[in-house]
């Protein structure tokens, strides 16, 4: 039993990282019907930006709550700016072009970001300091949870719940939902669509930045090409949950993390990835719009 619960903790930790990244995919898709393939590379970029801010501003060895909060805030801000620039330069000129052009542009933008990371920070693996978070470990009857894991679970839940209320309960959220349903109609209602899209990129990129920093803090080693792996898993999570659907992305991420952990734990870690894609295919066959459904249904 404790082994099962331990696998749940393992799965939920990686799952909430996937969920944070998946939100970036799903929000952009919801509004623009575009798969932002550069999103995974933004996640990788955030880890490098965060590490640089930390070592340049605070210096190795200094750890305080203020330092960690500053690193998170500044990194999220930098990545949000990059996300907005990405939209301006790579997607806005193609907004009326066929969808395939925008997807190709997204793939290209991803390569540009990936190679920029390599040119700026070099091709070597960079390693996060181990003392950003306290190395406290709690052990409940054999179920181990670390402070970092708790932070990942806690902060991502807070962000996801906050996002849910922002989208569903605020005026801005209503405008975002309206734009997602029909851009032209939203425009006629006096909604500034460009501004909405900018906000989408700010939120999506900041959430990705938080995920990128957590990846760096939890796993320590970051490489310029790691965005692809996290991006792919998060993309699968977004589709499983129903792309365009915000609770769907959260659910898909957590489910994918759990599913991976349980498959690795009870069948074989060699099969984890195979089963991920079997799950994807099964979901696509029986529920083509994802488990919680794609939001296009509202477009009637």
């Amino acid at each position: 039993m404790d082994i099962f619960l331990q696998q749940l903790v393992n799965g939920l930790t990686i799952g909430s990282l996937y969920a944070l990244v998946a939100l970036g995919y799903t929000m952009v898709y919801g509004v623009m019907k575009l798969i932002n393939f550069a999103h995974g590379d933004l996640v990788a970029l955030s880890a490098f930006v965060g590490l640089t801010i930390y070592t340049q501003v605070f210096g190795e060895g200094i750890t305080s709550l203020i330092a960690v909060i500053t690193v998170f805030m500044f990194t999220a801000a930098v990545i949000a700016v990059v996300g907005v620039l990405l939209e301006r330069l790579a997607y806005r000129p193609l907004r009326t072009a066929p969808r395939l052009s925008a997807v190709v542009s997204a793939l290209g933008a991803g390569l540009v970001i990936q190679n920029a990371i390599m040119l700026i920070w070099g091709p070597n693996m960079m390693i996060f300091p181990s003392n950003l978070f306290p190395s406290t470990i709690w052990n409940f009857n054999g179920i181990v949870i670390t402070f970092t894991q708790l932070m990942i679970l806690g902060l991502s839940s807070v962000l996801m719940v906050g996002l849910y209320f922002f989208i569903n309960r605020t005026k801005m959220g209503t405008a975002i939902r309206a734009t997602a349903i029909d851009q032209d109609a939203a425009k006629l209602m006096g909604i500034n669509v460009n501004k909405i899209i900018m906000i989408i990129f700010i939120i999506g990129s900041s959430l990705g930045a938080v995920a990128g920093l957590f990846i760096g803090i939890y796993y320590r080693g970051v490489t310029f090409d790691m965005g692809w792996m996290y991006g792919l898993n998060a993309f699968v999570a977004a589709i499983i949950g129903g792309i365009g659907n915000i609770p769907g992305a959260m659910f898909g991420g957590l489910m994918l993390g759990l599913f991976n952990a349980l498959i690795s734990g009870y069948i074989s870690s060699s099969w984890a990835e195979t089963f991920t894609f079997v799950l994807l295919i099964v979901v696509l066959i029986f529920r083509p719009t994802g488990i919680l459904g794609e939001k296009v249904a509202e477009k009637v």
């Binding site: 799965g11 990846i215 080693g221 490489t223 952990a261 498959i263 734990g265």
Partner: peptide
């Protein structure tokens, strides 16, 4: 290699 999260197999 490169998946970074090995807790599942280690728990097993």
């Amino acid at each position: 290699s490169g998946t970074q999260n090995f807790t599942a197999v280690l728990t097993k």
